[in-house]
């Protein structure tokens, strides 16, 4: 076999092997590099500081891609519910005057256990757990 041909084979084989190895290893190394968003899932979110929410008020917290209504009923008691109305998916709000959760779209009312008091909603609101860590309020999904 002549020399230039052997060289060609060597080049093709060497070049091809190294190029293909790079094309396999590059994605693998990139994969191992942790992404900027470190958490895979939303099982809990921080809802800010304790002092940011006065007793008998509520606020909407983004939980993943869905809204959650956090309510501070008294100085020490906190509750959280899915803020998606079970009627037509509008966002519910806290009504300070009557201590209820209220959907403005069709006047659905829920009590502070998430159960339907009046109006069109067919199901209760899903409840979430609330924990206080230091002075941080943390909402988590109920297992």
């Amino acid at each position: 076999m002549d020399e230039p041909r052997r060289n060609l084979v060597r080049w093709l084989l060497g070049g091809g092997l190294s190029a293909s190895l790079i094309s396999f290893l590059y994605p693998a190394f990139k994969f191992m590099n942790p992404p900027d968003v470190p958490e895979a899932s939303v099982n809990e979110v921080s809802a800010g500081k304790v002092q940011d929410l006065k007793p008998n008020t509520g606020k909407i917290v983004k939980f993943g891609s869905l809204p959650v209504l956090l309510v501070r009923t008294t100085e020490t008691e906190w509750r959280a519910f899915s803020a998606v109305c079970t009627h037509l998916n509008c966002t519910v709000q806290y009504k300070e005057s009557s201590h209820q959760m209220w959907c403005a779209c069709h006047n659905g009312l829920y009590n502070l256990n998430g159960q339907v008091v009046s109006g069109p909603p067919p199901h209760p609101l899903e409840a979430y757990s609330v924990h206080i860590r230091g002075d941080e309020v943390v909402i988590s999904r109920r297992a």
Partner: peptide, 27 residues
């Protein structure tokens, strides 16, 4: 490296692999 074997997180972690991790979809 990324998968989490619990019902609350399994789906989310695979989704995380598919969307957030570089070349996760490929692997």
């Amino acid at each position: 490296l990324y998968y989490r074997p619990s019902p609350a997180e399994a789906y989310e972690s695979v989704q995380f692999i598919m969307t957030r991790v570089q070349f996760g979809w490929l692997i």
